[in-house]
Design a protein around this nucleic acid. Sequence first.
DNA 1: CATATTTGTCTTGAATTCAAGGTTTATTTG
DNA 2: CAAATAAACCTTGAATTCAAGACAAATATG
Lengths: 172, 172
Amino acid sequence: MTQANNEDAVEHILEQWHKERPDLDVFAMGVLGRMKRCTLLLEKRLDAVFADFGMNAWEFDVMATLRRCGAPYCLSPTALFSSLMITSGTLTHRLRVLEEKGWIVRVDSPQDARSTLVRLSDDGFRRIDAAVTAHVANEQSLLQGLSAYKQQGLNQRLAELLASLEGENRKD
Amino acid sequence: MTQANNEDAVEHILEQWHKERPDLDVFAMGVLGRMKRCTLLLEKRLDAVFADFGMNAWEFDVMATLRRCGAPYCLSPTALFSSLMITSGTLTHRLRVLEEKGWIVRVDSPQDARSTLVRLSDDGFRRIDAAVTAHVANEQSLLQGLSAYKQQGLNQRLAELLASLEGENRKD
DNA sequence: CATATTTGTCTTGAATTCAAGGTTTATTTG
DNA sequence: CAAATAAACCTTGAATTCAAGACAAATATG
């Protein structure tokens, strides 16, 4: 209360734990807590830009995956849900919505009669191309609170952490 | 393809974008992408420990909030959903489940007849105390991929980013 | 070739969450 | 004090997701 107070919301939680459970070392809890809360706040800010283009985050994700795979902007449902790390049932729902909006079209696969490929429509292409431009600018502005040097430091640490987490995760 | 390959899953996405949209600077996209994926992987690993104590992440969150506020481990529903950053309706559901499990009890508020306070039961207290001990150890082990020095660097950068994001967010 | 297995996709039902609005009790105002 | 407003909590309906499994087509095996 009388201390200097450059605290974020997580700091208060750590102090509560320290008072109640002084036996615990809560440093790691602080790191993960801050990362989670950053992710949450960042998602909200990203959503705002997606909304400017009439889409939500998952619509952006599907369209962006099709866009960045290159011409003819066409993938199988299996490739899509694997890349997006969602279940096949979830993708089925997403594709239905995007098809109704006219942003994707479905094409019968020439190689496999079980499969219908998914392709960006012309409208979908234009829309995701505009959205991703604004999205990237938005992401840059969200990191403006850190100097370019600190942004690189953060990126480096996150890359190392991600590599270590993905490395141990081979059994999944 | 012929380059050295210390890539995480995000690096591949950045390369695709660079090929398709060389006009975009995707550095910031990499930072946010890595943070989001770390958060996702970390959540999975945390869930595994929660499951050892018969709970899931949101059950842990509610119980932990009650535990760390100190004796008598009792808060109003409004204090709880505010602290947990969830809606009142979501809290209603969570409390119903936790009450059925016998981990919380509801007490009429002496000051306000509209309100019934929520308190950890004895069983709930024992359970969350054991769970949080294991949880903190788990969090420490998840950061083992980074040296203590790098963990502190990551924490510092995340704290700065969080502060900048919370600072601008005052309108929410 | 016939059967068995694998692969690709979709359907169903349950869980979780939120937004919007309802009800009850407390507080403020005239 | 009566009426209006605010606060605390709950209910409802819709959205999103997953896990499990159904089904059809492709591939492998004997």
